[in-house]
Structures are given as structure tokens and as C-alpha cells.
Simulated scan of single mutants.
Amino acid sequence: TEGTDAQATVSVRMEEAGRIVTGQSADTDTVVASAKAYVHALNNLLVRREKSGGDTPEVNYKDLT
């Protein structure tokens, strides 16, 4: 409702070829928070691709918890 300070917190986990990434976001709108978390996870996935050179999937076990 209008005037509240409620926040939706969203966590997204993605996996591609053994690469597991997460994205997190918070917003007053659940859909906006979800979209931001998804984009954050995609950005993390792109960084992982570049770091690994695309050959061997890099798995950070910290992301599995």
C-alpha cells in the first residue's frame, strides 16, 4: 500500500555449463526487484565467462550455499 516502507528481496540463481551465479536485489516493487536480480545474475555470468576464457567452467562453491 502507499506510504509503507516494505521491500521485496529477490535472489536468483543461474547455471550454465557448470557455472553457477547468483544475483540479488531489493525494491518496493517485486517485479522490479526480480528484474534487477536477473540482470545482476546475467552480468555475473558474463564475468565468469570472460574469466574462464570459455573453456573450463569455473564454479565458486561459495555460491552454492
Results as ranks from 00 to 15, higher is better:
Asp55Leu: 14
Val21Ile: 12
Asp55His: 07
Leu45Asn: 00
Leu45Tyr: 01
Ala8Gly: 10
Arg19His: 06
Ala33Tyr: 09
Asp29His: 06
Arg13Cys: 10
Ala37Trp: 00
Ala6Val: 07
Leu46Gln: 09
Glu16Lys: 15
Ala8Ser: 09
Gly23Leu: 02
Lys51Pro: 03
Gly54Ser: 00
Thr4Cys: 11
Glu58Ser: 09
Val21Gly: 02
Thr22His: 06
Gly3His: 12
Gln24Leu: 06
Thr1Lys: 10
Thr9Cys: 02
Tyr38Pro: 00
Asn43Ala: 14
Val59Met: 09
Asn60Val: 13
Val32Leu: 11
Asp63Phe: 13
Ala17Leu: 15
Arg48Asn: 06
Ala8Phe: 11
Ala8Glu: 12
Val10Ser: 12
Glu50Leu: 11
Tyr61Ser: 02
Ala17Gln: 14
Val59Ser: 05
Ser25Ile: 03
Val31Glu: 11
Val21Glu: 03
Arg13Leu: 04
Gln24Trp: 09
Ala8Met: 11
Ala8Arg: 04
Ala26Phe: 14
Arg49Ser: 02
Met14Cys: 07
Tyr38Ala: 07
Leu42Thr: 04
Thr1Ser: 10
Glu2Ser: 10
Arg49Val: 04
Ala35Gly: 13
Gly53Leu: 08
Arg13Asp: 06
Asp29Glu: 04
Ala33Trp: 01
Ser52Phe: 05
Lys62Val: 05
Glu50Val: 08
His40Arg: 15
Thr1Gln: 12
Asp27Ala: 10
Ser25Asn: 04
Gln7Ala: 03
Val10Lys: 00
Arg13Ala: 12
Asp55Gly: 04
Thr9Pro: 00
Pro57Val: 01
Met14Gln: 03
Lys62Ala: 07
Gly18Trp: 01
Thr9Tyr: 05
Thr56Ile: 06
Val12Gly: 10
Asn43Thr: 08
Gly53Lys: 09
Met14Lys: 06
Asn44Arg: 09
Val47Ala: 09
Ala35Thr: 15
Glu16Ile: 10
Ser52His: 02
Gly18Ala: 08
Asn44Cys: 01
Thr1Ala: 13
Ser25Glu: 01
Val39Phe: 05
Glu58Phe: 15
Leu64Pro: 12
Leu42Val: 08
Thr28Lys: 11
Arg19Trp: 07
Ala33Gly: 02
Glu58Tyr: 14
Gly23Phe: 00
Ala17Thr: 13
Ala37Arg: 00
Val59Gly: 04
Arg48Ile: 04
Leu46Met: 06
Thr28Arg: 11
Gly3Arg: 06
Thr22Lys: 06
Asp63Met: 14
Asp63Ile: 15
